[in-house]
Amino acid sequence: MKKLDKKFVIFIAFMVVVLLVPFVVTNSYMLRVLCNVMIYSIIALSINLIVGYSGQLDFGRAAFVGLGSYCSAILFTTLHVPFILSFLAGGLFSALFGALLGMLCRYSSFDYLTLITIGFSEICRKIFQNWYAVTNGSFGFRTSRPEFFGFVFDTPASMYYFCLVILALCYIAIRRITKSKYGRAYMALRDDSIAASYAGIDVKKFKLNCFVIASFFTGIAGALMAHFTTFISPTVYTTDESLLELQMAILGGLGSLPGSILGAAILTIVPEVSRAAYEYRLLIMGVMMVVLMLFAPKGLLGRGGVWDKVVALIKKKSSTSKNK
């Protein structure tokens, strides 16, 4: 019981700090970075659902971010659909393509699905780049800040709160899914798909709905990104970007939701802070991928990851010193 209370206290303290940030940090650049962290957190969470929970490898998440971005921006700016509708449509549009991709799981093995996700993202990128009539091609597409009944989120602080609310909603929804029969079905088919099918789980159906659900959240993150940066360019939705997003989920820890946020925070903030880290970011990412896989495949906060190891080490140290 005591342990639970401690967790709760930490949670409350964390929430208070997060809510007070815009009062303390008035530097708009820093708030922008934090918004980016939150947007990438949603993407990393959705990747965690696919890679960490259901054990499929997806190298094309950036395409889904792009689908959400373009859909929401085009509806809002070109077609003047109310913001809330176009924002949700971004998620749904991405989910629709998630369903398409999820349906392909039915026919293909793990490796092929990985290739299909890359192929799909390449196809999307080509379309973003070349369909001038709709996406304005490589010139990019300009859109505007979120707007509810006349209230425009145009200050950095208001945007911060907007991102925070969306992240919180996504986090709660994803957490509830992972704690439910859906989450258990994903983990079961990840660990052993044959045993899962004997436990009454329709493996194909759950792979499909995992892709749909995750793509919805990725699309929402994409829509958020579009209205936050107010400018969309096809160069943001490349395979390298997908891999960066995947790396956030892996660094934080597959199967750990707070881990995804931590991973997104580290990989967004570090390149901003250090110029050298920005220049060599691909090299650093490469080394990090290999080292993590070799020594801590569960990342920082995953089960048996770095955090668990450190805690175990400290416990061991303190117990041996007591014994002395």
Binding site: K181, R184, A185, A188, D192, A199, R303
Partner: peptide, 28 residues
């Protein structure tokens, strides 16, 4: 063939998968 990366309770709950009648909306 147990689900190695899940706890024992979770393993059993996977067995109950078909008996738990909730929709995605209920869950969220």
């Amino acid at each position: 063939r147990v689900f190695g990366d899940m706890t024992v309770v979770e393993n059993l709950k996977v067995g109950m998968h078909k008996l738990i009648k909730t929709s995605l909306a209920d869950i969220i």
